[in-house]
Nucleic acid binder design. Structure first.
Lengths: 192, 192
DNA sequence: GGATAACCACGACGGCCGTCGTGGTTGATG
DNA sequence: CATCAACCACGACGGCCGTCGTGGTTATCC
């Protein structure tokens, strides 16, 4: 009898909600059980240690953050341009802010990973792969800019999301304004 | 006998080290006592609750992050230019990466504040004031760009620091490259 | 120099934590 | 239908947590 994968996903999703709502401090096996509406001990059975729980959440987070292939395909049919790159980035921001819990949980995991070697390894691998894929996609799609521009966009968007989803500086500029300025300046200015 | 301010600072600094090294989860009164090398219960006497402890750390963090007035004065004597703005930003990055504990602790506090109303209020006030001061300083110094450009720089630098100080994407570009590109593109491109 | 008030070290209490063991239950197999 | 292994609900244990109370101690003021 294989471990019930649906139950695992149910628990991981509950764990991500807990992590976003209560932080690393509030993330406990019992809290996950309560959030998932399952008997006490269930999370402990599926993720036998705290490290296993964190690893499980890290794995799940990227599954849920994956872009919709249909939307990607639609975008892929257009001619490469700054406007197209802006739409890609807009889609990234939309996905991450539509489910703020997920993004907040990822921030928590990144902080936690900087202290737990095994999680750092796992999360680092995924993040690096994500960046490498972004660069490969960017180049393959013929979009303006290269690895450096992709990195700069990553930094800026992460910082923007951090501001939007946690304690904010509240500068008063909207998403549209920020995203299009970032693309046109960080990429457009360098590539003409 | 007024509360001993030196002891308070000693404890707050120890608390910031604990927060950076062990995260919000490891930040306990007893851990602060141990880190500061004082008898158990001391932190609990100075910061009677966990909320008070967090507020104390938030207060202390900005004291320690304050720029050196002498360096600021030196920079203030130069003619406003993109190069000068680059030097300002370089100084920000240098201050924050020289003491990674402080910056990591601030990330933790920002996350924690997004869940604790009283801390959100306090930290939000300080962050907003910091941003407003930056803008005012920027304008008064005659530097190129305005509030929007300052905000964009804030986002990008925060994201860059998050990458450098936590689980990193490891894109392989160095500080110098990133900082000057951010200034020249985010500000220079917009102001000619 | 004695009174007084603040400071501070220390211990205690109830509560929640991660982890592990155990026995009931379920579903597939022959 | 009997068997058996995997799953899963539940309880227990030692440990650490935040918080509060309680005396000992110290510095100041009359």
């Amino acid at each position: 009898m294989a471990r019930n994968p649906e139950r695992r996903v149910l628990l991981a999703d509950a764990g991500l909600r807990v992590l976003a709502a209560a932080g690393a401090r509030g993330l406990t096996h019992r809290a996950v059980d309560a959030e998932a509406g399952v008997p006490t001990g269930t999370a402990s059975n599926y993720f036998p240690s705290r490290a296993a729980l964190l690893a499980g959440l890290a794995e799940r987070i990227f599954d849920r953050m994956a872009p919709d292939p249909a939307i990607l395909a639609d975008l892929g049919r257009r001619e490469p341009s700054l406007a197209l790159l802006t739409d890609y980035l807009r889609y990234v921001v939309e996905r991450t802010t539509r489910e703020p819990d997920l993004t907040r949980a990822l921030f928590e995991l990144r902080l936690e990973a900087s202290r737990r070697p095994e999680l750092r390894q796992a999360l680092g691998d995924v993040l690096r792969k994500g960046y490498a894929d972004d660069v490969a996609f960017h180049v393959a799609a013929g979009l303006p800019g290269g690895a450096f521009e992709v990195a700069l966009l990553h930094y800026a968007v992460d910082g923007f999301l951090l501001d939007r989803l946690t304690t904010s500086v509240d500068a008063g500029f909207d998403v549209e304004q920020v995203v299009s300025a970032l693309v046109s300046r960080l990429v457009g200015a360098a590539t003409g």
